[in-house]
Every structure is written in C-alpha cells, then in structure tokens.
Nucleic acid binder design. Structure first.
Lengths: 294, 294
DNA sequence: CTATTTAATAAGTATGAGCTATCAAATTGA
DNA sequence: TCAATTTGATAGCTCATACTTATTAAATAG
C-alpha cells in the first residue's frame, strides 16, 4: 500500500468524477477498470475520506469529493500553466536582461535588438544603462549586467566578445565649414585643425583608431578637448572650437549645426561588439545573442 | 522511463532546491543519493528543462528552476491545505480559515471578526498567527494563509486589499510625564524627545506615516529604539527611555505605567487593511470578507 | 429467469523506484 | 605533489506495486 497521493491519483479521480462511471473513465484513461477501482480506493484510504458514493448501481460524488474535484481541476490547470511557463523561461522568452551600452550603440543596434526582442519575446523585461567600455566590463564581471555593447578589441578572461556592427568613421565639422563631402580630398587637409575626441578612458580602442587614421595621413592631431558625450562634442564643433571624427551612425538622432563627411576610403572601421560573461546562464542572454549574431 | 511528473518528483526537487546538495537532500528524504539523482534527471527529461546547474562541484538553480521552486512550494502548501479541508468537510465541520495579523489588530478588529464568525458559522475552525506585514504577504502568496491584517498601502499583483479600520495615532508617554491630554498643544512640543517606534521592517507604512507626522510639525524625530512588539515599546516608555507614537487602539489591553495622548487633529490616520489572494476559493474567506466589509 | 451491465475482488506480471557498488572529477590537506 | 576525501553520475540488480486478466456478486432489464 502506498502512503502518498500522486498526480496519477488526481488524473484518475478527475476522470471518474467527470464520467461518474468506472468503465468509461477507465477507457478514457487507457487502463483497465479493476486497476482504476483499486487506485481510487487507495486514494480514499490515503486521504481517509470517502470521495464517491457507489450505491445502487450509481456512482456519485460525496461532499468532500465535490470539493476535491474543484481543487484538483485547479491544480491540474495550474500545473499545465507552469509547464508552459517553464518552457518560455528556458527558451529565453520570459525573464529579464540587463543591457549596458555606449551612446553610439543607441542609434541603430540597440533599438533593433529591442524591437526584435519585443516581437519574439514580448514578456522579456529589459533594463538599459549607458556606460563606458570600462564600466561595462566591470559590471559584466560582477554580474551586474548580462550584456554590454562596447568598442574594444579584447576583453578579460571569462568574458566573450563578438562584433555586431561595422561602421565607417565620419569627420564632424561646423555646418558652414569650407570643406564638405563634394570637395573633400583626404584627412591630410585637416592636419592643422584642433580635434575634439571621445576621451581615451571612455573608449581607448576608438581613441587609438582615430589616432591611427591621422597617422596614416601623415600627421599627429592636436587634441584640444576630450569628452564622453556625443552631444558635448557636437556642441563644441558647432561653436567652432574644433572638429571631430566619430562613428558615422552618430549623424542620426542629433539636431545640430554640424555636418558629417564620411571617410569612405579609410581602412579603419568603427566596430561595435557585444560582450558577455561566458558562464552567464540567463536564457534571455542566449536569446539575445541569437538575435544579434544570426 | 516514466512519462508523467508525480508529486514525488516535487518533494525531491524541493529538497534539492533547498539544500543545493544531493547527498544532504537525499538524507533528508530518507532515500539514497543515486536514487535522488536519477529522479531529478528524469524530472528534467519529462519537463525538457534544466532545473539545476551542476558545474564545478556546485549545485545551483537555473532561472527555470528558481521559478519552479516557488510554484512547487505553492502547490505543496495548497495541497496540505486541501487535505485538512477535506478532513473537516468529512467530519462535518464546514471549513477552516487561516488568519495572519499584526499585533495591533488584536485589540478590536480580530475579536470582532471571531465573534461574528462564531455566531454565523459555528462550524468554522480558525487558526491565528501573529506575523509582520511582509511575512503575511509571503504566506498569502504561497497559500499558507487565507487572510491577513496588515498596514500597507499596496500589495503585489494577485493579492487584494481593503481598509477595515481607521484609527487615530496617540502619543505614548510615561504616566507622570509633564504633558497630558489637557495641556497638550501639539507634536512640536516633543521635538527634543527620544522616540521608540515599531521597526521599519515590521511595517514601513507605519514608520513613514509617523515620520510624516513629525515632519509636518517641523522636526525630524530622534529615533533611539525600534521594536516589533507593543509590549516592548511600552516597557521602554515606562522606564523613561523615550516616548512613542502608535495607533490609539493599542491603549486597551496593556496594563502599563504609560498614558496615551490622542492626536485628534493630526491628518494622518493608522489604517488597518485586510489582504487576501484574489483567486483563493476558500468559502470561509468569502464569508469573512462579507463580515468585515459590510 | 436469463442476459447484460455494473463495480469489486483475486491472482499473476512486468515496470520502474530505489538499492549497492563503483567511477570520474574536483577539493583538501600534509 | 600526491594521497585522502567528497562530490554527483552511472551500472546493474531487486523488490514493491501499478496494472493486467479472470472471475464474482449485485443490480437492472427484457
């Protein structure tokens, strides 16, 4: 004799409670009638409660049985809901992801990801935080972020990184600057200008790459200001305090009196990458990497 | 290989989820560790979801496992409630209700409810448990309580809440304190006193409201002690370690050398509310809500 | 009174939960 | 650095029991 109710008992009980007929219930369950009889009897023994009245050829529920039927229906429904829920969590459609990003990722990559995610997994919550490369790497390692959008060539051990967006660089100059896309010959024309760049701390890869671009053109730029916000840089350019070189994607989204000259022939590209902790098991992270890398 | 989850799996899963250690969990369940391992593995196969991460000697819950733990706790509690309920029905008692409450509800609201209930439904069994706001909300969600008496402004999704008793606040001061109801001018007179309050953990709404009362009077109280029991607070006041502000209802039922000065003109009130799970189908709960809200 | 249908009982079978023994891998300790 | 210990997983076996078929007793119908 068993000492513990099992879900099997509940299925059997429900079938009998619905059919009020052992043979028919047994058929529905694909088991034999005697088997069903013994299991229901056992159930009544375990609970020490009579669930069915079997008088005079008729099967009917007792008061306790009627109560139990409602409860078991609830539990069975709840259970199948849980199973669906589990599947969603496992597939990364339900849950939360914490995203860090550089400002320049907000122009295209992040909105794209959020739209895809909303479409495929509407139940996923996202939290967004604009952070420097360095702060993102730190947060990833300390499990304060699930995913970061950075401009870096390498990441520390334990983290992984993959490029997701390659962009050209563009010169940013005041709106009435004497050179524009049509009469632009090459970066060497800018050798005498003051440069306003993103600070090295904010993204050293960016900084080194911009330096590389100028060196290839045969000069070392005079860097007069460094900032961590595109808005600040554009403001300074607008006020003729210098010119800048930034990822082309930044030309959308700001309303400024500056113009962009895209450096199409330059071999250096602005590469935006995703970074994450290799052993992060958040299923939503996996889902995001799928969306980003396929 | 079995194709259906059983309650046995749930017990085993809970043990491992609590211990995060297979051998210890197996001991607690009085079965062998290999048996437990295979059952958990089977469970993961049936649900097609990984529930535990067993990396590098450490067992931990996955996102799906964490979710399932909460759900299984709920189901197990609900199940044991069903069993008790079945027994009561079978024995001719009509039902049972499990009540949680803050100490201050015992002065008036709870005795009233119990008398009404006894009169209208003599067959109902009640179980009473004094708990903090937070513990009550938890217990309601996990189906360990049917109804709670709390001081909260909001409750989580899935729960419902309704005010049942509005009380004034009263100052509690030593019996021979130089101010009493007749020569009391206003709270500002207490600006220099030490305050002994219910701890913020016990009821943050109470704490914030009391702070609000003092701020409205133009000072920030010096809080020297925090407690979770009215008795303790009154003892401290009696021994001149400070004064307190509490719901006026608490003045009945304690025999202490303290006196109450009711703050009749203060706009803040001490509001006691009932909380319950919206989908709780215990008929006795409905009966109690009727008695309380009509 | 026979034929049919009901659920319960009896006896046998085979499935699988849980056992012991063991392994591989990681951790600890000298 | 290597033996000792501890972890969870695997393999093979055993026995409890869920479920089977065969049968019975009781009720209903024709």
């Amino acid at each position: 004799m068993s000492y513990q109710i099992e879900l099997r008992h509940f299925s059997y009980f429900l079938a009998v409670a619905e059919e009020l007929h052992y043979r028919k219930a047994a058929e529905k369950l694909f088991i034999s009638q005697p088997g069903l009889s013994t299991q229901i009897k056992q159930m009544e023994e375990i609970l020490s409660v009579k669930l069915f009245e079997r008088d005079k050829k008729k099967v009917s529920l007792t008061a306790a049985g009627t109560f139990l039927k409602g409860e078991v229906e609830f539990i069975m429904n709840h259970l199948s809901q849980i199973k669906r829920h589990l599947k969603l969590i496992d597939e990364g459609h339900l849950g939360e992801i914490r995203i860090g990003f550089l400002g320049s990722a907000m122009q295209k990559v992040i909105p794209n990801l959020l739209l895809n995610l909303k479409h495929k997994s509407p139940e996923v919550h996202t939290s967004l935080e604009e952070l420097s490369n360095h702060a993102q790497i730190n947060a990833l390692q300390k499990d304060k972020l699930d995913i970061g959008f950075v401009r870096l060539a390498r990441v520390p051990n334990g983290l992984q990184i993959k490029p997701v967006f390659e962009d050209t660089f563009s010169l940013v100059v005041p709106i009435d600057f004497h050179i524009d896309q049509s009469n632009f010959k090459g970066i060497h024309q800018m050798a005498e200008e003051d440069f306003i760049l993103f600070s090295q701390d904010y993204s050293s890869l960016y900084y080194d790459t911009v330096m590389g671009i100028c060196e290839d053109a045969g000069f070392t730029p005079k860097v007069s200001h460094k900032s961590v916000h595109a808005l600040t840089i554009f403001k300074l350019v607008e006020n003729r305090l210098g010119i800048s070189i930034v990822p082309t994607a930044l030309q959308y989204g700001f309303k400024m009196n500056v113009k962009f000259i895209e450096l199409k022939k330059i071999k250096q590209k602005a590469i935006l990458s995703v970074a994450w902790k290799a052993d992060n098991r958040n299923p939503v992270l996996r889902q995001c990497l799928n969306l980003l890398l396929n």
